[in-house]
Each structure stands twice: as structure tokens, then as C-alpha cells.
Design a binder for these strands. Structure first.
Lengths: 228, 228
DNA sequence: GGCGAACCGTACCGTACGGTACGCATCCGT
DNA sequence: ACGGATGCGTACCGTACGGTACGGTTCGCC
């Protein structure tokens, strides 16, 4: 039965077998616990009960493993499409609050933080990567593409639905989303990336989300939406 | 004459001689060009024309060198105190715009980005650093303390001056500053940390700053300040 | 002029990690 | 039942880096 299941799983997610996904899960755990330095080929092999040879067969080299970790984790986030029809004022507000909380939850997740740290740590300012080293901002691109852009699309569709319903007013949806993002996140993400305990910040998430949505509606709401 | 000059320089900035500052400058250049991996003890010694032995004598070990780099660079930022008296509506708006531009300039600076990447890369989620390794979120703390908090103080004093002049209305200055920060920066900082070309974003800085200030005044301005 | 401190350049050591090769078990298809 | 593939465990290699030690040189000071 294995072949059928494995091929199905391979088709389901970015071209990896279940075994490989289990390995990636172990690698992610190592990354979360010990940072990038802890993700050694030998360490991953030991933690996942597989051989280094298999690692190199599956992922090519260490960079391939790191990329696969990001792709794998990014593939997990399922962007819940919001049904935009029949959007009322209170419904929009609730959807915005839910989005704000989801965003803060995602950004404060241990795995998300660890992967962002990893991608940022790999990033190099100048156009470095002389020769074959082509993994310059690749990981960063991957994260941005699969993470931020996905969740951003959910927000922009919601915003555009609000505009279509005559509840919001803006010219550029992306710009409005940027404002919403800034109001929600401020510098919380960066502070968590720098080591600030997420648990401490999580206690303020609800209030922070409410205030952000209220401010956003003050800026972009139409008529009664712009109340406090 | 050296002793007098060196001791004067040592007193001037965080306890380092001019020679050591030159070394730190070389190390920063290496960091900006090649990322953390490029900052090897041998590489710094070669770039700065000093011996590894001196490096270890001055900075203890590699972590001490990295910390010294952050402290040294942080010591450079001189927070220009704003004279808050006689604050008019137009003056406040100009000060806010200037602050927004300064903030974006600082955050998009190559050295700032490299140091943030360094500190983030060193950060570890769980309470790791078993044994003697005590440099967990230390670098992050250093950056936050000397960087963000400094520039934040400038903003909060400005905001409080605006409130004292009856131009702004808010309860918590830190919260208002957080909103201002979010409106200005949004996710530009993170995107640059992930490798997005700062030059591309810099072109939008002026417009971004203006919009952020306008939004902020809409939210917190009193009376005529809240106009578009 | 000679002494000592600071320092440079280099050589050296131990280790840890990326990557490769080999031997053996397991399991699948024929 | 057999052959081949897959993969685990381990041993191995080369390298690169952190950290230390040593010889030689400059320079200030007695």
C-alpha cells in the first residue's frame, strides 16, 4: 500500500514523501530549539533516525534541506478564504479583528519565528554569493512569497469586499493593507525576532488587535464605520 | 602623545581605543559585505591589519567582538533632541515628517540591517545556551536598548510636546508612538532584512513618510491637525 | 642605550561540520 | 525464493574556523 499512499502524499505537498516530511519535522524541531547552528546534517539524521546519505539524496545539500524546511512549513498554512458576500459593518469589523488575531498568532509562532530568523540570518546585504552560492536572498524570497503574500491576499480580498460593500474607502488595496499591517504588528515582530518573549506580547494581542482595527476603520471606514 | 589621546578617546566612547574602533570598523565592513559568516577572527585580523592575539586580548572571544561591534555602532547614533517649545501645528507636522524620514533612513542603512541580521541570527527561541553560552538574546537586547529605545525616546518627547501644545490627544505616549512606528515602517524593515533591495524601497520613503504622518494626525490630531 | 610593553604576522592545535563511501538490514516485485 | 532497490548506521575525509603560542619589531620610558 505504501507506493500509492506515498505518491499521493508526494502530489499533495511540495513533492516530498511522508518519510521526508517527518525528517523535515525533526529538522524544524531542532531549528526551533537550538537555532540555525543546531541544524547540522548529523544532528538532523540522528534526530530523524535516518542516514546522512539519505539526507543528501533527498535534499541535495544543507541549503536544500533548509529550503525544503521553509517550503514544507509554508505549505502548512491554509489561507482560509473569506466569503465576502453579504458583508455587514459588524461583519467586516469582526473579520478584521479575526484577521488581526490570526496574523499576530502566525507571526508569534515558534516555528515562524525560527524560520524567519533562519532566512534573515542567511541573507547578505551586498550582492554576495560569489560563484555557485546562489542561495542569497532565496530563503527570504521563499518566506515572503509563501508566507506574507498568502496571508496578504486574504486581507486584500477582505478589504476589497469591504469597499465593494461601501464600507471602506481607499484607492490602493495594497497600500491600505500595508497600513492595516503596520497598525496591527508595529514592531512586535521584530522584537520577537530579537528574542523578546512572545508569551509576554501574546497577552496584549487581543487589545492590540482591537485598537488596530479601530484605528484602521477611523482611517478608511466610510460613515458609521469610522466611529471609535 | 598617544597615551593622552588614547585615554581621551577611551573615555569618549564605550571604553575602546581608537585602534580598537578602527578594528571594529573593519569588522563592520566585513559584516555588511559578507554577513555573519564573513566575520571570522582571521578575516577581521587580516582586514584590520592586526593580530588575532590582539583581537582576543581586546574582546575576549568572538562573541565579545560581535557585541563590541553592536555597542560601537549604537554609540554612533546621536539622538538629536528636539526643542519642543513654541510648537506650532505646521512645526509639529514637519518634525513628524523629519522623524519619519530619519527612522526610515536609519532602518534601511546597510550597517543597521547587517547588525539586525546578526543579532537576529544569534537569537534562539527556547531558553537555550546551556552551560556557559550566555549570549542568547544578549545581542538583541543590546540592539533594542541602544537603537530602538533611543530613537523612540526622541519620538515620545516630540509627541508629548505636541500634546502639551494642545495639538495631539492620546493617553499613552508609548502606545501612540507604537502606532506612529507601525504607520511609518509597516513591514518594510522585515522585507529589507529578508533581502529586499533597500534602494527600491528608498524611493517611496518620502511618500510613505507623508502618508504615515497624515494618518497619524488623523488618528491623534486635535481639531485642525486632523485634516488630511 | 637598554628595558619592557604592546602588537603584528604566522604558525599551530583541536574540533566540528559538510559531504562521501561502505556494509548490512528490510522490503518489494517477480 | 531470489534480486534489486531503498535506506539506516557508521566510519571516514577535507576543510575551515575558534583559540593559543611564539618570534620579531616598534616605541615609549627610565
Amino acid at each position: 500500500m505504501q507506493i500509492v499512499d506515498e505518491s499521493a502524499a508526494r502530489a499533495e505537498r511540495g513533492g516530498s514523501t511522508e518519510r521526508q516530511n517527518a525528517v523535515l519535522e525533526s529538522a524544524l524541531k531542532l531549528l526551533v530549539d537550538g537555532g540555525e547552528k543546531a541544524v547540522t546534517t548529523a544532528g538532523v539524521a540522528r534526530a530523524a533516525n535516518c542516514s546522512k546519505e539519505s539526507l543528501y539524496k533527498w535534499f541535495g545539500d544543507r541549503d536544500g534541506l533548509l529550503s525544503a524546511m521553509i517550503s514544507y512549513q509554508a505549505g502548512k498554512v491554509r489561507t482560509v478564504e473569506v466569503r465576502a458576500e453579504t458583508l455587514t459593518a459588524e461583519g467586516l469589523r469582526k473579520h478584521l479583528s479575526a484577521f488581526a488575531l490570526d496574523l499576530l498568532d502566525v507571526l508569534s509562532g515558534e516555528v515562524s519565528l525560527a524560520l524567519n530568523r533562519l532566512a534573515i540570518g542567511q541573507t547578505v546585504g551586498k550582492a554576495a554569493g560569489r560563484g555557485g552560492r546562489g542561495s542569497g536572498p532565496m530563503l527570504g524570497r521563499l518566506l515572503e512569497e509563501r508566507g506574507r503574500r498568502q496571508i496578504g491576499r486574504r486581507a486584500t480580498t477582505l478589504l476589497e469586499a469591504g469597499r465593494a460593500a461601501g464600507l471602506l474607502s481607499f484607492d490602493d488595496a495594497d497600500e491600505a493593507y500595508g497600513t492595516l499591517y503596520g497598525l496591527i504588528v508595529t514592531d512586535a515582530h521584530l522584537r520577537m525576532l530579537l528574542g523578546f518573549d512572545p508569551a509576554t506580547l501574546k497577552k496584549e494581542f487581543a487589545g492590540r488587535a482591537e485598537r488596530a482595527v479601530a484605528s484602521f476603520l477611523t482611517l478608511y471606514g466610510v460613515g458609521a464605520m469610522a466611529d471609535a
